[in-house]
Design a protein around this nucleic acid. Sequence first.
DNA 1: GCTCAATCCTTATGATTGTCAACTGTCCAT
DNA 2: ATGGACAGTTGACAATCATAAGGATTGAGC
Lengths: 146, 146
Amino acid sequence: MPANTMTLVTHAPSLAEAHGLSARLFRVIDRMRSDFAEIAGEFGLTPLQARSILQLEEPQPMRALAEYLSCEPSNVTGLADRLEVSGLVERVAGADRRVKLLQLTAEGRRLRNQLAERVAAGSTVTAKLSAAERRTLSQLLDTMLD
Amino acid sequence: MPANTMTLVTHAPSLAEAHGLSARLFRVIDRMRSDFAEIAGEFGLTPLQARSILQLEEPQPMRALAEYLSCEPSNVTGLADRLEVSGLVERVAGADRRVKLLQLTAEGRRLRNQLAERVAAGSTVTAKLSAAERRTLSQLLDTMLD
DNA sequence: GCTCAATCCTTATGATTGTCAACTGTCCAT
DNA sequence: ATGGACAGTTGACAATCATAAGGATTGAGC
């Protein structure tokens, strides 16, 4: 099917090109992941726990957190258990008595503030870009995300 | 200190700006991860196993794979065990008899080829960019990676 | 040659993340 | 009211991660 092939060549990246771009993205991802894991570790948190703390600016149903984390609700049970034991989060009954809201404790809010500042400040990857480059990157990422 | 503030605004991202950029990057990361996990799943592999297969174009010491995966060597033992059971990889003695090289089997090489093509073709995130945008993104990523 | 530290891999243990299926309690539309 | 849909939990299990300890092998220095 030569016509189809032409279409692919014209509108889609070649395999080699896609591979190069993917490879770069994966390397950036790797660096960001380890940066984030490092920072989370400074606060005694796993990466997933840190993501959860950051996401809990407002109290949220456990189900909503599960969707944000792209995992099964059953995982959030254990995750919330551990955060509750750490004294960072508490389960609060919602208006709908089926749902339990996860809410930061005072200590949790304090840690979240420090963590947010540290994460924003300590990204070694984006720090190398100029303001204009950051703007361009931001737009490209928006395009990728639709 | 208005002068200092000016300098910061010019050279370094504000916290809000950094947060916005990080958030976008994390969302892209999330999408790429689930894309990759999906593709790996089509081949009956976990994401880590798929990454290992892709990395094993040439036979490599287990330690080298551990470094590539940013994990402890002890983890690679179990990883290699499972890939060996699947018939995709075999342990080969190296010149230095302490090291064991991981080497794709014939079946492993066959799967690696399909997997590589599928990964390059199936990236839903980069597919939305034009050729020029992909070029720009590639350069920005290189800058971030130095 | 011999010793000894270093290196590679394995084993064992334990915490965390992840899926799935079954279960309890609650809501809501019929 | 009753039944289906939904939120969260539980239990079982696989996979991913770190750490520590141990066996085999290497290579450097004496």
